[in-house]
C-alpha cells in the first residue's frame, strides 16, 4: 500500500471539492436551462408554423452536429465579439453546455411527444380541452414518463462534459485533478482514481433518482 498522505489531506481534498462544486454548479444550471430550452425547441420543431419550425430545426441540426469542445471555445472566445458583451468563463460554460444539451434533449422530447398515442390526444380534444391543456395534462406527462431514462442519461453525459470547460479556464473537478497530479509526487493514477470515484458517486446518484422517478410513475 503506497503512502497517499499527499493526496488525502485537507488542503488537497478541499481544492478538489471546490472543483466538484464548480462541476455541480455548471451541471445544475445547465440541466435546468437545457431542459427548458430543449422543451421549447422540441415544441418549436413540432410547430405547424414554418416561421417557428424552421429556425428550431436549423438550431437543433447545427448545434448537435458540432463538437461540444468547439462550442465551448466559440462561446467564450467568439460569441462576445458578436454580441458585444464579455462573458465570464463560468457564464460561457453554462451557455455552451445548456445550448448544446438543449439540442439533444429537444430530439428526445420530440420523439417522446410523437410516441403518445394519437387516440389519447383526440380523447382530450373531444372533451373540450384547449391545445395547451391537451399538451400539459395529457401529451407531456405521458411523454416525459417514457423519456425519463433517456433524459437522465443526457444529464449524466452533461455532468461529465462539464470537464471540457477546462479549456476556457474553469477550474472544475477534472482540471483540478490534473493540477494536483502535476505537482510532486507526480502520481496521476491515485488522483484520477479518486476523481473517477467522485464522478461515479454523483452520477450513480442521478441514476437512482431516475429509477425512483420511473418507479413512482409506473
Amino acid at each position: 500500500m503506497p503512502e497517499l498522505g499527499w493526496l488525502f489531506n485537507v488542503p488537497v481534498l478541499r481544492f478538489l471539492l471546490i472543483g466538484l462544486g464548480y462541476t455541480l454548479a455548471l451541471a445544475a444550471l445547465s440541466i435546468t436551462i437545457s431542459f427548458a430550452l430543449g422543451m421549447l425547441l422540441a415544441l418549436g420543431r413540432l410547430s405547424r408554423f414554418p416561421l417557428i419550425r424552421y429556425p428550431a430545426t436549423l438550431y437543433i441540426e447545427i448545434i448537435r452536429s458540432l463538437p461540444l469542445l468547439l462550442i465551448i471555445a466559440f462561446t467564450f472566445f467568439g460569441l462576445p465579439q458578436i454580441i458585444g458583451v464579455q462573458l465570464e468563463p463560468f457564464q460561457a460554460g453554462v451557455i455552451a453546455l445548456s445550448g448544446f444539451t438543449a439540442a439533444l434533449l429537444a430530439e428526445i422530447i420530440r420523439s417522446g411527444i410523437l410516441s403518445v398515442n394519437r387516440g389519447l390526444i383526440e380523447a382530450a380534444q373531444s372533451q373540450g380541452f384547449t391545445g395547451v391543456q391537451v399538451l400539459g395534462l395529457v401529451t407531456l406527462p405521458i411523454a416525459l414518463r417514457r423519456m425519463t431514462p433517456a433524459i437522465v442519461s443526457q444529464f449524466i453525459t452533461l455532468l461529465k462534459d462539464t470537464s471540457l470547460t477546462a479549456i476556457i479556464g474553469i477550474l472544475e473537478l477534472t482540471r483540478r485533478g490534473r493540477i494536483i497530479s502535476s505537482q510532486p509526487p507526480f502520481e496521476p493514477i491515485p488522483v484520477f482514481a479518486l476523481i473517477a470515484v467522485i464522478y461515479f458517486l454523483v452520477n450513480y446518484g442521478l441514476s437512482l433518482v431516475s429509477r425512483g422517478l420511473e418507479e413512482r410513475q409506473a
Binding site: E122, A124, P141
Partner: peptide, 11 residues
C-alpha cells in the same frame, strides 16, 4: 365521445 380503444388517460 367513446372510442374503440377506450383512450383513457393512462397516467
Amino acid at each position: 365521445m367513446v372510442f374503440q380503444q377506450f383512450n383513457l388517460y393512462p397516467h
